[in-house]
Each structure stands twice: as structure tokens, then as C-alpha cells.
């Protein structure tokens, strides 16, 4: 078995005393795998994602990313680590008033000198890379349009492009399809899986949609009330385990 890219050990997070959102979570992400976390709303999936990127500081536990313990990082070290991890958001989180190109280039901010960034002096290689990505994403013609002109599916593809511009060693994808219709959801997942595999980037996704998860996952993890209740190949995901994850089974029929 190959060495894990990301090792989460005994991670807990609580905002209020004795009401943990994450409860002693341990999880490994292996190279080049697409790992999808499923579970009902409020299971702690998003919190887990944000802890990995240190947008939230966990209450206890460790997250080892290629030897770095993320929760212990600060300042420049933390930012240097963040730029190695790309993130895709549920509601896209594009900077609406900037162009599509600039939104992609935000992925390079972690690499740029502050003054260059401030004056919008982007490197020509970065723009070329963005152009190549936009072409792959089918958004080349929108490059200089403002992000708020795009449809949901297009926006999410910009979100994926932005994350990939970071040249990430890990991709975190938070509910990528919750704001999209079923057809667009599949398209977005397809292009993301394709680009990630090409670049050999492991992907950690969380979503509600069990069918979509079955279709794209190499491995599935089920979470409920801040704990991991299932971890296995997608073939092992039976109706019984689903009932255990989501509670009850009336929703399946």
C-alpha cells in the first residue's frame, strides 16, 4: 500500500462546549484516489474540509499533509501550505466583479509577490496556463467576461479552474453540485475527475448525492453526527450502510 498524502488523526472540533461537530475523526487519503464523503447535512463534512485547509482551527487532533501538521502552522507557513491544497466550494465563491481570467489567477496569488499581486502584474506563464485550462473547461470565450455573467455550471468550472491553477497536491471539493441541476452536476464532476486524474491529484469530495458518489468515487466514506460510520469501496456501500449513514430507509424507496 502506498503512503497516504493526507493523514487525519483523532480530529475533533466543537464550537460550543460538549457539542462536537467533529468527533475523533481519523482518515487517510491515498495518492491519486477520488475519495467521496457522504452524509446528511450537519454531519460535519464541510467542517472537516475547512479544517484541512486551516480555514477553521480544530479543537484537537492532527492533520498530516506530506509530513506537515496543518493545525500547528501559522502565517507564511500556513499560506504556503494552503496554496498546495486546492479548494472548490459549494456556492462557487467566485469574486463576482472580477473577470473569469482574474478569478483563475487568484489561484496564483499564493505564489506571487504581494506588490505584483496588488498591481495585477500577472506572469505571462500564469496567463498561458489559465488559457489552457479555460480551453479545457470550455470557457475560453468567457475569459474576459465578468464572473457574475456566468451560469451555475460555468461558475463551478471556473471554481475548479481556480483550484487547479494552484498546481495543488490535493483537491478539496465541498458540495460541488448542491447548487447545480442533475445534468450539469454530472458534467462538472466528469471534467473535474478527468482533470484530476490527468494531473495525478488526489481528490477529497463531500456531497449528499449517493448516486453521484457511486459513479465517481474510488472510495466512499460515510459520516454521521461528526463520526465516520463507513469507510470502504463503493461496491461495499449497501442499503444497510446507507440507512446507518442517513438514518431510516424510507427515503430510499
Amino acid at each position: 500500500m502506498s503512503e497516504a498524502i493526507l493523514q487525519i488523526r483523532n480530529l475533533s472540533k466543537s464550537y460550543f462546549h460538549k457539542q462536537p461537530v467533529l468527533h475523533d475523526v481519523s482518515l487517510d487519503v491515498k495518492p491519486e484516489e477520488i475519495l467521496i464523503i457522504i452524509g446528511p447535512s450537519g454531519a460535519g463534512k464541510s467542517t472537516l474540509m475547512r479544517c484541512i485547509n486551516h480555514l477553521i482551527t480544530p479543537s484537537s487532533g492532527h492533520i498530516y499533509f506530506k509530513g506537515l501538521d496543518i493545525p500547528s502552522l501559522h502565517g507564511n507557513q500556513m499560506r504556503a501550505c494552503r496554496r498546495r491544497i486546492g479548494m472548490v466550494f459549494q456556492e462557487f465563491n467566485l469574486v463576482e466583479r472580477l473577470t473569469v481570467l482574474e478569478n483563475l489567477l487568484i489561484g496564483r496569488l499564493g505564489y506571487m509577490k504581494p506588490l505584483d499581486a496588488f498591481l495585477q502584474r500577472y506572469a505571462a506563464e500564469d496567463i498561458d496556463a489559465a488559457e489552457a485550462l479555460l480551453t479545457r473547461l470550455g470557457l475560453r470565450e468567457f475569459a474576459l467576461k465578468r464572473a457574475d455573467n456566468l451560469s451555475g455550471g460555468q461558475r463551478q468550472r471556473v471554481g475548479i479552474g481556480r483550484a487547479l491553477m494552484q498546481n495543488p497536491e490535493l483537491l478539496l471539493v465541498d458540495e460541488p453540485t448542491s447548487s447545480l441541476d442533475p445534468k450539469t452536476s454530472v458534467e462538472v464532476m466528469e471534467i473535474m475527475a478527468e482533470l484530476a486524474r490527468e494531473r495525478h491529484i488526489p481528490v477529497l469530495v463531500n456531497m449528499h448525492d449517493v448516486n453521484l458518489a457511486r459513479r465517481f468515487a474510488d472510495r466512499i466514506v460515510g459520516m454521521r453526527e461528526g463520526r465516520i460510520v463507513f469507510d470502504g469501496k463503493k461496491e461495499e456501500l449497501t442499503n444497510d450502510t446507507l440507512a446507518k449513514i442517513y438514518g431510516g430507509d424510507s427515503w430510499m424507496h
Binding site: R79, M87, V95, L98, A117
Partner: peptide
């Protein structure tokens, strides 16, 4: 919208860049 700010932070941008772009 703090979502836009969060996205810029997540890219590893410096504080100044977060202000400038987010």
C-alpha cells in the same frame, strides 16, 4: 460576501491580497 473572501484565503493568498482580491 465572506464566501468570496474565503475562496481567496483558501488559495494561500497573503492578507494584502485577500483584501485586494476578496
Amino acid at each position: 460576501s465572506m464566501k468570496q473572501v474565503e475562496a481567496v484565503r483558501a488559495s494561500g493568498a497573503s492578507f494584502l491580497s485577500v483584501i485586494r482580491f476578496g
